[in-house]
Every structure is written in C-alpha cells, then in structure tokens.
Design a protein around this nucleic acid. Structure first.
Length: 500
RNA sequence: GGCCCAAUCGAAUAGUGGUUAGUUCAGCGGGCUCUCAAUCCGCAAGCCGGGGUUCAAUUCCCCGUUGGGCCA
C-alpha cells in the first residue's frame, strides 16, 4: 500500500529529480535513486529533473559532474530539465534566507566552531545530549553589533519551533520526530553558502518537485526540511525514502565490495540495459513470477512505488553477472564488438590507429563464438587473451596434465601434418579430418581434441575446438601447434617440470 | 550516546489472518557433450526471538535482538 500526504499536491504533473553532489563518480546507489525517479516520471508522463548540488566548493569538481552526466546518459536516464547547478543559484538562496530572517524565523549566530565544541563537550560530560544552546538567539542588537565589529561573520540558523514534526513517507506511512531532537540548524554558512537542507528545500519547492524519491539515509533530514517548507508555506511534496544498497557484508556499499561506480561496470563490458535491469530489480519487483528480464519499456510500464521494498538491498554480483550474460547472448555482435574494441584499446592490446576492418571482422567472429560463455565483455580480454596475442600463455596445470602426457607430442605432430593439408579451414572440415585421424589411430577423438585445445589456446576450457580453430585461422593454428610441440620437447629434455 | 528506519531460503523478492510459503540468482546432483558454457530435469534451503490479539499469526500490536541510517 502507498501512503500519501493528504491534501497536498494535487498537482497535475509529476515532477521528480535526481540531485547528486559532484564529489565523485556516479555510485550504484545514486544511479538506482535516479532510476526510480526517472521511472516514476516516465510512467506518469511527468518530468525528470537533474540538479547538481555543488555548493560544497571544496569537494565538488568539474570531472565529477561529467562522470555523473556520463553515467546517467550511459544508463539511458535522460532528463527533461537541467542540469541546474546550485552554485549558480546562490542569489536565490540568499533571498529566501533573508525572508526567513525578516520573519524572525532565522537568526544570526556568531559562535565559532571552537566555542561550540567547548560547550558541547561540557554538556556531553554531564551526560546530556548536546543541541545548539541558542546562545545567539538571545543576543541583543548591541551585542550583535559588537561581535560584527570584531570581524565575526555570522551564520544563519533556523529557529526550530516547539512541538513535533511528522511527514508521510509513501512507503512507510507517518514518521514522527520531536522537534526538541532537532537543533537550530544552520541554513546559511558564514561564507554565504547555503547548507544542504536549505538549498534542497528551496530548489525542490521552486522547481515544483512533486515526489522526492531519495535514499533512506535522508529520513532524518526530512523533518528539518518539512519545517522549512512550513516556514515558507511551500506545498509539501510526497516523500519516498528508498532503501540503500549494501555490500555482501551488509555494510554500506563501498570500494571494498568491488567497485560501486557505474563507470567501472561500463568499462568491464556490462551492458547498460543489463545494469539498468539489475538496478531496477533491487528493491523493486513487478510481482511476475519467473520473469527477471525486463526491457526499459517493461519497467516503466510496471513501475510503481507501491512495490518497492523498505529493507536494505544487498548488491549481488553473481546475479548481475547472470543478467548481463543473458543480455550479452541476446545482443547484436556488432554492438558487442564495439564494446570489445574499446576495452582492447583501453587496456593497451591495440592502438586505435592500428585497427583495420579485418581486425573487426575477426573480433566479431570471436564474439560470435564466445558470447554464450562470458558474463561481461572484458572477460574475453582477461580470460581468453589467446584471441588477442600471438604468444599463447599456457596454463601450467593444463600444460602438465594434458600436453606432457606420453605420446601427445606425437599426436600434435600428426595434427600439424593433417591440418596443414586442409585448404578449406572451416569447422566441419576440420572436425571430419580430426575424427578420421582418431579412427585411423584407433583412439577416441577426445584424446586428440584436448591436447589440440591446450596447444592452440593454452587452456583446458574454451569453446568447441573446431569452431575455435576456424576462428583462429590456419596460420595461427599451425604456428601454435609448432610452438606447443617445441615447449613439450624442451620441458622433456630439461626434465624440469617433473610431472609425467 | 540520542533519534529514526527495517527484518520471508546464502542473495533478490512474491505472498497470505487458515497455503505443500512461490519465483529468480547462487549452491548441489543428473541428462546432453571434445572441455567450458548454454540448455533440460531434479535436490537442498526461509517466515529473527518472546509476549499478546484471535478459534487460528509468517501475516496485526508491543517488547527484545540484529542490521542500517542521521546527528554528535
């Protein structure tokens, strides 16, 4: 069931927003918040607004703004208005702060951080909870003038009235706070910058945001914000606090859990639709059984805050991997190839200017062969590097267990001879030749297939051998067989790797 | 420390005042097969604890526990 603030917002238009601070990359949690806001706006035919909360000048960067915009675009979370930058709206906050001050709802405070700290410690020592003691609320004009002449720059504090503040959270119903728990918080800092709660309320009100959907770490900010809405007589929006995303250990998602950055997943070759789907399914379920794969359209169609859960969600890489593998299998090879190309360039396997149409043709074949067995595209570079290098690196165990066995060098020698004869280097032809060879030798085809796979790929596992041979091409295959034979002979004569 | 929020298999979730509590991922076993993957079949696994309310509680209420958050 959905809890709605009564009598508020009968606004025709649903307007949601995503309001990140540009202090780093786009976080998975942030992306999911953006996604829910976006989905509701799209579902209701409303507007999705992007606002950059960059009033913390010291920590905000231009690169972070770009990273966030990139991440949103990549995920297909297109916005209808903005990005608005709070740093360009400072005059507006000042104006509204002045309004509160004039109405006597906010007051100047001259206490320095050191003074506050001192009084706080004293209070805490008595076992009493510290809240701002309203020292400056009681200052008279004369005292204020004196402090100003001393060169003190005041902050502006909001006066919290007595009583209690409640708001309706769409997911949880009414949430109550005793006002005495909230202290007179700062709305404008001494340098003239607004604080988070203040700028956020002014903007949400002026931008006519109808639904504030954000992480539930903001629940305790909400009563302060509600008090501001009331002070300004702004209409109160619907609030929905969605659960946070946690790591496997149930701690807040961070670098320790792999990377929490959207960009990282893009760079690993996760498909945007897959990450979108996965993120949407964290804390939200359509209610349909057996269905996990949803297109964007399907998600928009079905989305409702009503079936968003309230408990924290654990990010599960296994499930994302599975989901991504489903999307990869369904994806177009050319599309996957473009992703692979970026990865190869980024990882220095090839320079952009060296790429030729024949490279692309080859990579597309690699993808056609491998798309069924990878979870993310970069896995090709990481675990099937034999497609992209000339020198095959042998997995030590595979070398020892498969290639160093009695008679294998002999078998490979014959393979080399047989395969060299084949002009039409295609899988069915190759398969027939190898099976014929096995028959003549009176052995199982597997006894040839396995060594041959290790010889050309260095690994015991991989795609079907004959398809692999075809994709690698005759020249590479013959060369690799020769090198494998050489390695076997070297190892044997030097007697190093004492397996056998 | 104060305040706030939450709680169904390992994870994501469905669901209900009376159900054999369902599904997806992961795990395990098996079929297929040149290995891996894909695919198919099967198995295992859950209502945090205690009190109420009720004929009946996983479901409603309270307390506790645990986890998370905000402030300090």
């Amino acid at each position: 069931m959905l809890y709605l603030e009564k009598g508020v917002r009968k606004l025709a238009e649903v307007r949601t927003r995503f309001a990140p601070s540009p202090t780093g990359f786009l976080h998975l949690g942030g992306a999911r918040t953006a996604l829910f806001n976006w989905a509701l706006a799209r579902k209701e035919g409303g507007k999705f607004i992007l606002r950059i909360e960059d009033t913390d000048v010291a920590r905000s960067t231009e690169e972070a703004v770009e990273a966030i915009l990139d991440g949103l675009r990549w995920l297909g979370l297109d916005w209808d208005e903005g990005p608005y930058f709070q740093s360009q709206r400072l005059e507006i906050y000042r104006k509204y702060a002045l309004l509160l001050w004039e109405k006597g709802l906010a007051y100047e405070c001259f206490c320095t951080p050191e003074e506050l700290e001192e009084r706080r410690e004293k209070t805490m020592a008595q076992g009493i909870n510290w809240r701002y003691d309203r020292k400056c609320w009681n200052l008279n004009e004369e005292e204020k003038e004196k402090l100003k002449r001393e060169g003190r720059k005041p902050v502006l504090r909001f006066y919290i009235p007595p009583g209690e503040t409640t708001f309706v959270d769409m997911l949880r119903g009414e949430v109550r706070f005793q006002n005495e728990e909230l202290d007179d918080f700062v709305i404008m800092k001494s340098d003239g910058m607004p604080t988070y709660n203040f700028a956020c309320v002014v903007d949400d009100a002026l931008m006519k945001i109808s639904h504030v959907i954000r992480g539930d770490d903001h629940i305790s900010n909400t009563p302060r914000q509600v008090l501001l809405y009331q002070a300004f007589r702004f209409p109160i929006p619907q609030f929905a606090h969605i659960p946070m995303i946690l790591g496997k250990d149930k701690a807040r998602l961070s670098k320790r859990h792999g990377s929490p950055s959207v960009t990282y997943y893009r760079d690993q070759g996760y498909l945007p639709d897959a990450l979108f789907n996965y993120l949407a399914r964290l804390s939200w379920a359509s209610g349909e059984e057996e269905k996990e794969i949803f297109s964007r359209e399907e998600i928009v169609e079905r989305f409702s805050l009503e079936n968003v859960t309230k408990h924290p969600a654990v990010f599960d890489l296994d499930k994302l991997n599975w989901m991504n593998s489903v999307y990869i299998r369904q994806a177009d090879n050319k599309y996957l190839c473009s992703i692979l190309e970026e990865i190869l360039v980024r990882r220095g396997r090839i320079k952009p200017e060296e790429i030729t149409p024949s490279h692309r043709e080859y990579w597309e074949k690699v993808i056609a062969l491998m798309k069924e067995r990878i979870k993310y595209v970069a896995q090709l570079e990481e675990e099937a590097s034999y497609f992209f290098t000339e020198e095959v690196e042998f997995d030590p165990l595979a070398f020892e267990e498969v290639l160093q066995r009695e008679g294998v060098e002999e078998i490979l020698k014959e393979c080399e001879e047989v395969l060299s004869q084949i002009e039409d280097f295609r899988a069915p032809v190759l398969e027939e030749a190898v099976r014929e060879m096995a028959k003549e030798r009176g052995m199982k085809a597997a006894q040839i297939i396995h060594p041959l796979r290790v010889a050309v790929s260095g690994k015991k596992v991989g795609p079907g051998l004959f398809e692999l041979l075809e994709v690698l091409g005759k020249e590479r295959v013959i060369g690799r067989i020769q090198r494998a034979r050489q390695r076997i002979r070297e190892t044997r004569s030097s007697g190093i790797s004492g397996g056998g």
